[in-house]
Amino acid sequence: MTATGITEQRFQIEAGLRPEHREQAAAGYWDAFARKLRYPLGPRDKAIAFIRRVLNPGHAISAISDDNRFLGVAGFKTPKGAFVGGGIADLAAVYGMAGAVARGLLVSALERSCEDGTLLMDGVFVDARARGLGVGTGLLTAVERHAAATGLKRLRLDVIDTNPRARALYERQGFKPQSTQPIGILRHIFGFNSATTMVKEVGVVVR
């Protein structure tokens, strides 16, 4: 048993997001990506309200402890939707119409399009209490299996230069950097200088 009360490696991975974990997932998503999203979606209470509103369980894979605690989630995006989607009406419901327009423009700068044969990751995070238990690896493995089961050939994600820990995990899982794009003056808004696109071919064994 660890100091947090979670027994090492005792968790399960499941498709979707349980309704009772929606609030935790929204708060966890914000905490994981607040530096990048602080201007488009902050302050924290409104950001969490917006994320909770637009979360799509059909585009998620969750990690759950044996006693049913939420440990983390991997979201993904397809042409049919995204884990964290929403539109101008959802923004307006939380921020008002004037705020929605400005925030919508900022959010659109972070949008990435889906490519044929590719599953696009839409955020992976692990609860701080569960780090070091293999949860992140388990989530990425499950996402790859989902991609294979749906006939997709590769996984794609973008990792920012200020998150070396995440990049190290992706590299251990077999993701390879493809290109790095600086964001120029937008770095003052989003808090990072560049994002690296990483790709993994589905079914490739990591050695």
Score class of each variant (00 low, 15 high):
G117N: 12
P164N: 09
K200T: 04
S65F: 09
G134N: 05
G151N: 08
L133D: 02
S65Q: 11
P177S: 02
I6S: 06
V159Y: 00
R187M: 12
F33E: 02
R38E: 15
R53F: 08
A168N: 06
I185W: 13
E111K: 13
A195G: 13
F192L: 05
R52M: 08
F50K: 12
R131K: 13
T196Q: 00
D161H: 04
N56D: 15
V107H: 06
L155H: 03
I183V: 13
T162C: 00
N193D: 12
A166E: 00
F33L: 11
T197S: 05
L119W: 01
T2S: 14
A166S: 02
R154N: 00
M97Y: 12
R69P: 03
I64G: 09
A168G: 06
A3Q: 14
A147M: 11
K153N: 11
P43S: 12
M198V: 02
P57K: 11
G16P: 03
G72M: 03
T7V: 09
A47C: 14
L155G: 07
L110T: 11
M121Q: 09
E171M: 10
R187E: 13
R22H: 07
L139D: 05
R69W: 05
A98I: 07
E20S: 01
G42T: 10
T2V: 04
Y39Q: 15
N56V: 07
A142K: 06
G5W: 07
A93E: 14
G72C: 00
A27M: 05
E111C: 07
D67L: 10
G99W: 12
T196I: 02
H188A: 15
F33D: 08
F11A: 09
P43D: 13
P40L: 09
P57M: 10
V143Q: 04
A148R: 03
N68F: 05
A92K: 14
T118G: 05
